[in-house]
């Protein structure tokens, strides 16, 4: 079964690789992955869709949480969450079916982002199943080409992100100790 994992991580070189490395090291294939900066430019949020054995799901998330660059990895699969995906689709449609294509697009809430004599380019967002259906429908009108963004998810639980406080370096801790002895 496909799992959706949301990872809040530091926006640093190599951080992405550490997370995906945990999956590839276990032979898991990533179905989709999105990552972008958050409001805080030093942090990113990543949504991974991956087929992980049920038995190992919690283990993989624990391993992600262990990574130094990861602030929090959360399993969104069964949690209250909204998951959406963006689809760009080009459909070649002959003159006689243009109106029908536009009608279908409207039903799915798709926007026309390009129109030419050959057909349309459409943009639609929704949960992945809805996009699958949209693709199925469009295929019936002619040759299509698609590009999917992969899922982005957000948890609906108001969990507060716990950040670790700074700690003293060894030398500073020692100084503080000496200071404590000298000044009581």
């Amino acid at each position: 079964m496909l799992q959706i994992i949301s990872v809040h991580l530091e926006n640093k070189p190599g951080a992405l690789l550490r997370v995906t490395g945990l999956l590839s090291a276990r032979g898991y294939n990533i179905e989709s992955l999105t990552v972008a900066r958050t409001l805080d430019p030093e942090l990113s949020r990543m949504t991974i869709v991956c087929d992980i054995e049920d038995r190992l799901r919690a283990q993989v998330i624990k391993q992600m949480n262990k990574l130094v660059n990861v602030l929090q990895a959360t399993d969104l699969t069964d949690a209250p969450a909204v998951n959406r995906e963006l689809l760009l689709l080009r459909v070649r449609s002959p003159q006689e079916s243009r109106t029908a294509v536009l009608k279908e697009a409207e039903i799915f809430g798709a926007r026309v982002v390009d129109s030419s004599v050959d057909g349309f380019a459409l943009e639609v967002t929704g949960d992945p199943e809805k996009l699958d259906e949209f693709i199925g429908v469009m295929r019936s009108y002619g040759e299509i080409e698609v590009s999917r963004s992969g899922v982005v998810g957000v948890s609906l639980e108001g969990k507060k992100l716990k950040l670790q406080p700074p700690v003293l370096t060894r030398a500073a801790a020692k100084l503080e100790e000496v200071d404590g002895v000298l000044n009581g």
């Binding site: 991580l9 530091e10 949480n65 262990k66 990574l67 130094v68 660059n69 990861v70 602030l71 929090q72 950040l163 670790q164 406080p165 700074p166 700690v167 003293l168 370096t169 030398a171 500073a172």
Partner: peptide, 13 residues
Amino acid sequence: TPVDTIHLPGYKV
């Protein structure tokens, strides 16, 4: 410049 503190917000012990 001496470094006194280490801040790793995601490193949980």
